[in-house]
Every structure is written in structure tokens, then in C-alpha cells.
Simulated scan of single mutants.
Amino acid sequence: MKKYILVLIAIATYTLTSCKEEKKGPAQPTQMQQVMAIHDEVMPKMGELGKLVSTLKPMIDSTKTGMQYEKAMIDLQNANKSMMDWMQGFGSKFDSDEILNGKELSAEKQNLLNTEETQIKEVANKINTSIANAEAMLKK
């Protein structure tokens, strides 16, 4: 009889401990968090865009070099506009609970988020590229 009780206790203990969720490593960021991380990475560079535009503007003239400065300035301005347009569009498509609190997205909003992820990557590329090009031009 004692054997049966010990076996039942062992089975019950095994069953209870095996049903617990396994602890996993740190949670993977959601797609929304990844999109916001890209935004947060390039947003601080917006001030740099403005400074570079201010530096380039007086250097523009009708010479070949002056026109190159103008192109670099326009690229910076376009990158800035892209970020502003993206933020406005993103904010109109998602509410704060979806952005900040991880509220589950509908299938339609998930499709929108997929598109927004692609767009913010393009915006980040424009910002980084335009800054790098302007800085390289100014070092010449």
C-alpha cells in the first residue's frame, strides 16, 4: 500500500511540475516595438538634419560645387519631410494602446503595420544617407 501511495505522489509531483510553463529568455520585441525602435533611433538625428541644412544653405551658388551643396540640402530636407509625413500617417493609423501598450492588432492593422515597417526603414535610410552625404561633402 505504501508503494502505491509513493508512486501516486511521485506521479502527481511529476505532473504538477511538468505542467508549469518553461521560463524563456527575454521576450522578443513585438513588430510594433521594432518599428518604434527604428523611429527612436533616427528621430534624434532630426536636429542634425536642420544644422546641416543651415550650414549648406549659404554655400549654394551657380557653380558645380554650389549645385552639389544644393542637392545635398534638398536631400536633407526631403529626409526630414519623409519623417514628418511618416509620423503623421503612423499616428493616424494606430492608437496609443496599440503603439505603447501592445494592444492586439486586427488583421487589417497588422497589414498596415507591415507597410509602416517598410516605410520607416526607408525613412531611416534616407536620413542616414543624406546626413552621411552632406557630412562627406562638407569635409572636402
Rank of each mutant, 00 (worst) to 15 (best):
residue 4 Y to E: 15
residue 111 N to W: 03
residue 71 K to N: 10
residue 63 T to Y: 00
residue 44 P to F: 11
residue 47 G to W: 05
residue 15 T to V: 13
residue 57 K to N: 11
residue 82 S to W: 01
residue 63 T to C: 01
residue 82 S to V: 02
residue 27 A to Y: 03
residue 68 Q to T: 11
residue 104 E to H: 08
residue 30 T to A: 08
residue 104 E to P: 01
residue 86 W to G: 05
residue 11 I to M: 09
residue 124 A to M: 07
residue 51 K to E: 12
residue 134 A to K: 15
residue 130 S to I: 09
residue 65 T to G: 04
residue 135 E to A: 05
residue 53 V to I: 14
residue 95 D to W: 06
residue 132 A to S: 14
residue 107 A to C: 01
residue 15 T to I: 14
residue 104 E to I: 12
residue 12 A to E: 07
residue 38 I to G: 02
residue 94 F to K: 04
residue 3 K to S: 10
residue 15 T to P: 02
residue 42 V to W: 01
residue 97 D to P: 06
residue 105 L to V: 06
residue 60 I to D: 12
residue 34 Q to H: 11
residue 48 E to H: 14
residue 105 L to I: 06
residue 98 E to A: 03
residue 28 Q to E: 15
residue 77 Q to M: 07
residue 126 K to E: 12
residue 84 M to W: 00
residue 3 K to A: 10
residue 60 I to Q: 12
residue 126 K to I: 01
residue 68 Q to R: 12
residue 70 E to Y: 00
residue 132 A to R: 10
residue 84 M to I: 00
residue 74 I to N: 12
residue 102 G to T: 08
residue 140 K to N: 11
residue 57 K to V: 08
residue 94 F to R: 03
residue 26 P to S: 11
residue 36 M to R: 15
residue 128 N to A: 03
residue 125 N to D: 14
residue 74 I to V: 15
residue 78 N to H: 08
residue 138 L to C: 07
residue 122 E to F: 10
residue 65 T to A: 14
residue 7 V to G: 03
residue 14 Y to L: 15
residue 57 K to W: 07
residue 31 Q to L: 15
residue 75 D to N: 13
residue 104 E to R: 06
residue 22 E to V: 05
residue 39 H to Y: 08
residue 99 I to G: 00
residue 140 K to W: 06
residue 8 L to Q: 02
residue 47 G to L: 04
residue 74 I to Q: 10
